[in-house]
């Protein structure tokens, strides 16, 4: 996972006397070269490749102008993939945010038993998305899964065979893995709220629920923005999970942008259109990150980080 660049402040002007910057500059070169080769060059490369009709099978790359873009933009699969991506993003945000806040607040209180619960909560974060998806695929199997064995008709549905259900499963599995992460962020946020605010509220006779809505939530504003940015931008890149769980199916019901890109590029050997989709993926991600950042107020860029 990546994203939501918090601002790094470079050293204040006062440290100018640090023995001449020339003597340290060389230390940045190895990282710069490595990142340029496999980060910056590919980013430019994906734009270049979107104007090609490379198949991925040969080493020569024929250029074909705007053909790939015309193909992609005229293809009804693109709005569909955007819609699926949006649905997964919106639904997983709606499921994760309230639960993460609740659990984060719950974990913020310093109790031994809650610390023990936290140890268990975080296990899903450690597992690979491949392992998690494989587990759920087995668990939800209508014939051999948990539902079949327990005999609960509700659990016995063909979870991954029905479009709507499959999308729900993707959202559930995403939440299963990432709620602990966001709870951890909220736990940190809640612990930074000054206790005096709650004391003052108690003196004023505010109840628990009132305190939550009048103190906790507003104080968590920047934490919510940080967490939401990570959720929203991160959801664009769900690939492992969807690919292993449903491979975009059934009937394209979970064909999000990243899956669409993979299928066009590496299954259909159409690297040009796949690159065009990758460019769209980058642009959507940047727009969302910038938009959410603006929501937090640009001048507050630093406290976004500190709120986390």
């Amino acid at each position: 996972m990546t994203i939501a660049p918090p601002v790094v402040r470079t050293a204040p002007p006062g440290s100018n006397n640090a023995g001449g910057s020339g003597s340290v500059s060389w230390m940045a070169w190895p990282a710069l070269i490595a990142f340029t080769l496999f980060g910056v060059v590919p980013l430019l490369g994906v734009l270049v490749l979107s104007f090609s009709s490379w198949t991925g099978q040969t080493t020569d790359i024929p250029f074909s102008g705007l053909d790939s873009w015309r193909t992609v933009l005229a293809d009804p699969d693109l709005p569909h993939a955007l819609w699926v991506t949006f649905l997964i993003m919106a639904l997983s945000w709606l499921v994760q945010t309230p639960l993460s806040i609740l659990i984060g607040v719950f974990l913020a209180a310093r109790h031994r038993y809650r610390a023990v619960l936290a140890v268990l909560y975080f296990i899903p974060l450690l597992l690979s998305q491949a392992a998690i998806s494989i587990t759920y695929k087995a668990l939800l199997d209508p014939n051999f899964g948990l539902g079949a064995g327990l005999g609960f008709p509700f659990l016995q549905q063909d979870w991954l065979g029905d479009g709507t259900l499959a999308l729900g499963v993707v959202v559930f599995v995403v939440s299963w893995q990432f709620i602990p992460f966001h709870s951890l962020i909220y736990q940190g946020g809640v612990r930074q709220i000054p206790a005096s605010m709650y004391e003052a509220a108690q003196i004023d006779g505010a109840g628990r629920i009132r305190q939550f809505f009048s103190i906790t939530l507003p104080q968590l504003k920047y934490t919510i923005i940080t967490s939401s940015t990570l959720m929203v931008v991160g959801s664009l890149t769900f690939f492992d999970l969807i690919w292993v769980l449903t491979a975009g199916g059934p009937g394209g019901a979970t064909q999000a942008l990243a899956v669409d890109m993979y299928q066009r590029g590496f299954k259909a050997n159409l690297m040009g259109p796949a690159s065009a989709i990758a460019v769209i993926l980058v642009l959507v991600g940047l727009l969302l990150a910038l938009g959410l950042r603006r929501l937090g107020g640009r001048d507050q860029a630093d406290s976004q980080l500190e709120g986390a």
């Binding site: 939501a4 496999f38 590919p42 991925g56 993979y262 796949a274």
Partner: peptide, 15 residues
């Protein structure tokens, strides 16, 4: 930080 790995995987494959 804002570049998702998936989005640049095709040029990486080429390289």
């Amino acid at each position: 930080l804002a570049i998702p790995l998936q989005a640049v995987i095709i040029p990486i494959y080429l390289i």
